[in-house]
Simulated assay, not measured.
Amino acid sequence: MASYLLAGERLVRAVAPGGELEREHLPQKLRAELEAALEKKRKGGDRSSGPARLVSFRLIRDLHQYLRERDSTLYLHELLEGSEIYLPEMVKPPRNPELVARLEKIKIQLANEEYKQITRNVTCQDLRHGGILSDLGKEAAFVCTYLGSQYVFTEMASRVLAALIVASVVGLAELYVMVRVMEGELGEI
């Protein structure tokens, strides 16, 4: 959470000797804290210690309170022109290797379970395309009935109708067998 302000040039000039805040006769303690915060330099040019000229919000509130009490014509928003809220860089703690390994294991297990769920009703037979052997029973029943019915019926329509009836009965029988096999497979799962 932000608790510092990166002071802009306007605030630095106002606090400097001869600046706008000198006319306000700031209390010695407040002036000393502001000057100390604004004159802070990085130790040895080191960026890890954070940027220079960081002023705490508490110090800014104290300055604002003092200016209000004195009914000053110098307003805080004018002094803070060009300043920015300082958000320190968030350092993420290193992840526990044991936790990472457990998470990876769980991800793999979940992926395997999802794959099994998706492929549970998939068989190695391709039912969509219907190979030669899969429809052989229906086709053979139709052909045999059609050719055999020429000795019984003389009209073409009667022969086709008889062939369709027999092919439908064979198809229903195959459907019955397929359902019984699937019930057996579902019972095993």
Rank of each mutant, 00 (worst) to 15 (best):
F57M: 11
E24D: 00
Y66V: 02
P51A: 13
R61A: 07
H25P: 00
R58Y: 07
H64K: 15
L34A: 02
R31W: 12
G44K: 11
L30M: 07
L59I: 05
K43G: 06
L21W: 00
K41R: 15
L21A: 01
K43D: 10
R23F: 01
R68H: 06
D62S: 11
E39A: 10
L67K: 01
P27F: 01
A36F: 04
K40H: 08
P27H: 06
F57C: 12
K40C: 06
R42K: 11
I60W: 08
P51R: 14
E22I: 02
D62F: 04
H64L: 04
S48A: 12
G44M: 04
F57H: 10
F57I: 12
L26K: 06
S48I: 10
L54I: 07
G19Q: 05
G50A: 13
S49P: 01
K41D: 08
L21Y: 06
R70W: 00
P27I: 00
A32E: 09
E35S: 08
G45A: 10
L30P: 11
R61I: 06
R61Q: 11
I60K: 11
S48L: 14
L67V: 03
E69L: 03
L26Q: 03
R23G: 03
A52H: 09
I60C: 13
E69Q: 13
S49C: 14
R23M: 00
R58V: 10
E69Y: 10
L30Q: 09
R23T: 02
A36C: 02
K40S: 15
H25T: 00
E33A: 14
L67W: 04
